[in-house]
Amino acid sequence: MTINLAIVGVGKIVRDQHLPAIAADPAYRLVAAASRNGTVEGIDNYTSIEAMLSQKPEIEAVSLCMPPQYRYASAHAALSAGKHVFLEKPPGATLSEVAALETLAAEKGLSLFASWHSRYAPAVEAARDFLSRTRLHSVRVVWKEDVRHWHPNQAWIWAAGGLGVFDPGINALSIVTHILPEALFITEATLEFPENRDAPIAASMRFSSASNLDATAEFDWRQTGKQSWDIIAATEAGEMVLSEGGAKLSVDGKSVHEEPEAEYPALYRRFAEIIAAGRSDVDLAPLRHVADAFMLGRRKFVDAFHD
């Protein structure tokens, strides 16, 4: 079965990741795109999802890649029109709207996919397997990068609902919630807001669990030079380091697992699988942690940030 797919929101992530993954997957035929600012060569392009859905009835599934603050209305329109929906991360601006979309998908008998691309990084499953076979003492997450390099002049990410540093930080949370053998919950947090922005530039969090696991996370968008995307776990079997955003795994300094990145091809394979199975995949654990950090966290104002 070939799925007639459309994509909404043609920006950098679509050009860098989605379009190559779709083109390489025989399960899909890309038939249309909708975007206010971009087009995809060789297919029909529209300036709104409403126009696309009304004029292109053969569409069977839609990938939504616009900023999360604007995603609910498009997802609701696509599901209401009988289309399966792929949500870029984070799946929405609030937990409530994604829960409502999950209910609508179930009512319509459609598949809804809340995608977490970092869970599909090449060494993540190896890390999960390692932690399942040993006793865990502590976990430390260090996720620090240069916002000017990765999100230059993207005003939406600093607006309310844009998540700020949690946009990359939620990638770390998506891995942690997948690989740890028990659930975590936030006990304290500090969020640093530039005085001229509505979203944080840095965050520190402490977590616990039913077994009182010691876990911390440090997110920061002000890092220059080498970028840090690491999850460090102290265990009875040695120190496990899942580095480079999940691309490499080492134990006590010795490499255990390393493969080329293939996150988005894996996401689209998963989307095709759940469509074929007639079900959804909507894990909101990473987004719940972000919501908890905003709800529980202490706010600290820091110097203004300018691109």
Score class of each variant (00 low, 15 high):
232 I>T: 15
226 K>Y: 09
220 D>H: 11
222 R>W: 08
247 A>Q: 15
242 L>K: 01
230 D>N: 11
234 A>C: 09
248 K>Q: 12
225 G>W: 02
228 S>P: 05
241 V>H: 05
228 S>W: 15
248 K>C: 12
243 S>P: 10
224 T>D: 09
247 A>M: 15
224 T>G: 11
230 D>L: 05
227 Q>H: 00
226 K>F: 08
229 W>S: 11
230 D>H: 07
240 M>I: 01
237 A>P: 03
218 E>Q: 13
221 W>K: 09
232 I>N: 06
223 Q>G: 10
227 Q>M: 05
235 T>Q: 02
226 K>L: 11
224 T>C: 07
227 Q>N: 01
218 E>S: 12
240 M>D: 00
248 K>D: 12
236 E>H: 13
226 K>H: 13
225 G>S: 03
224 T>P: 01
223 Q>S: 14
222 R>E: 13
225 G>R: 00
242 L>I: 08
247 A>S: 14
241 V>L: 06
220 D>Q: 11
228 S>H: 12
246 G>A: 09
224 T>A: 11
232 I>K: 06
240 M>N: 00
229 W>T: 12
239 E>L: 07
241 V>W: 00
220 D>T: 08
219 F>E: 01
240 M>H: 01
241 V>I: 13
243 S>W: 04
222 R>I: 09
246 G>Y: 07
237 A>R: 07
221 W>M: 13
245 G>I: 07
244 E>S: 15
220 D>A: 15
226 K>A: 13
223 Q>C: 13
222 R>G: 10
218 E>C: 10
222 R>F: 10
237 A>K: 08
240 M>C: 03
227 Q>L: 00
246 G>L: 08
245 G>M: 05
218 E>N: 11
239 E>Q: 15
223 Q>V: 12
218 E>F: 10
223 Q>R: 15
238 G>F: 03
224 T>S: 13
240 M>L: 15
221 W>T: 14
226 K>W: 09
220 D>K: 09
233 A>K: 03
222 R>H: 11
231 I>D: 00
241 V>S: 03
235 T>W: 00
241 V>K: 04
224 T>H: 12
235 T>L: 02
243 S>H: 07
228 S>T: 14
219 F>W: 05
219 F>N: 04
228 S>Y: 11
238 G>L: 03
221 W>Q: 13
243 S>E: 07
231 I>F: 02
232 I>S: 08
235 T>A: 00
